[in-house]
Amino acid sequence: MQRFRLEPLEDNLFRGLSEANGQSSIFGGLVAGQALLAASMTVPEDRPVHSLHAYFLRPGDIRQPVVYDVDRIRDGKSFTTRRVNAIQHGRPIFSLSTSFQVEEEGSRHQTPMPDVPAPEDLESDESARLRVADRIPEQFRAAFLRERPVEFRPVTPRDVFAPESREPLKQFWFRVPDPIEADRMTHKALLTYCSDFGFMGTAMQPHGMTFWQSNVQCASLDHAMWFYDDLRVDDWLLYHCESPGAAGARGLTFGAIYRRDGTLVASVAQEGLMRLRPGEDPV
């Protein structure tokens, strides 16, 4: 993917292209993935990323590229730490801290992958969207029907224009449909990008809220990931998402991402803004 080829500008400075995702600002997952990739470009290849913690600070301008300023905080014997600020118009829009570790063997356990239908047995999100095209309000139509770089197959589809209240649990398969010839670090940066798609919507489900309601204001506030194993984003991955709670117009969601063979490859956590504007028409 072109958006994951960063341009080196100077020592510790990199530039990435912007992208809209049917929104007026840059998709947060893109900035997170690019920031992780920028950090990795200052780290030896034999130290894969094992965690990241980030805050979304300001909306990104889709008309301008993003500059990534990498701070080489520490290079230890086993761990390497980097801090990255994503900058537009002279101000940080995103801040990330990430850690890399020399590969080593150790004890291992994981929560088993949930028993869900295979992706081939589920309808694609794109097909479902086309089926309801005539019901899409005019103000949402272009964004709702735009082609997406990631393919999704939800285990339990939801009608986003007539959302019922349901438990804060979401499961879906996802992949980038086109083959990606890239190193494992780029695949992990792309996983970071993918991990932000629809994730915080899990916390909105008990309240009958969706991103497509005009009286709902949503935004990712922070994002954290832990990586356990190699993966390919051009092969099917299962995203299991659960929200333990919401309060103060914020919802928290935890996620687990599995390879098709049942191996847990990453854990995710995110808190997002889910503000309901009183008195406004939900459509």
Rank of each mutant, 00 (worst) to 15 (best):
M209S: 00
F27N: 01
Q34T: 08
G60Y: 07
P278I: 01
S40P: 04
F79N: 04
A54W: 00
W236P: 00
S214W: 08
N12W: 02
V283Y: 13
R141T: 12
S195H: 03
C241V: 01
G198E: 12
R275W: 10
D196L: 05
Q171C: 11
A38L: 03
W226K: 08
G106A: 12
A39S: 11
I62A: 09
E167W: 01
E103P: 01
W173G: 05
R82K: 09
A20H: 09
R3S: 10
Q270K: 05
A189Y: 01
L264W: 07
A182N: 10
V116N: 07
N215V: 08
F56I: 04
Q139D: 13
G106S: 12
E181K: 15
E271F: 00
C218N: 14
T156F: 05
V265Q: 03
P8S: 13
L13I: 06
R3L: 15
A246I: 00
R63T: 15
L6H: 07
A203F: 04
F79S: 06
P117Y: 06
S95N: 07
C218D: 00
P163N: 12
S127A: 15
G16H: 08
I62K: 02
G28F: 03
R175V: 09
H187N: 10
I87Y: 01
F56M: 03
I93N: 07
F14Q: 03
W226Q: 11
H50Q: 12
E181V: 15
T210E: 07
P137T: 13
V31L: 04
M200L: 15
R184H: 14
Q205T: 12
V116W: 02
A189G: 06
T186M: 13
P278H: 14
G22L: 04
D71L: 09
E103C: 04
F174S: 07
C218E: 03
A32Y: 03
F174V: 11
F14A: 06
R260Y: 07
E120N: 14
S220Q: 06
R47Q: 12
D261M: 12
V116G: 05
F197I: 14
D134L: 06
P59S: 13
C241D: 00
R259S: 12
V70F: 05
R47E: 10
L231I: 11
H53R: 03
R108V: 09
L6N: 02
L130S: 13
L130K: 15
Q64N: 10
P44L: 11
F152K: 07
S99N: 12
G262Y: 09
T186L: 15
V176Y: 02
P119Q: 12
D178K: 14
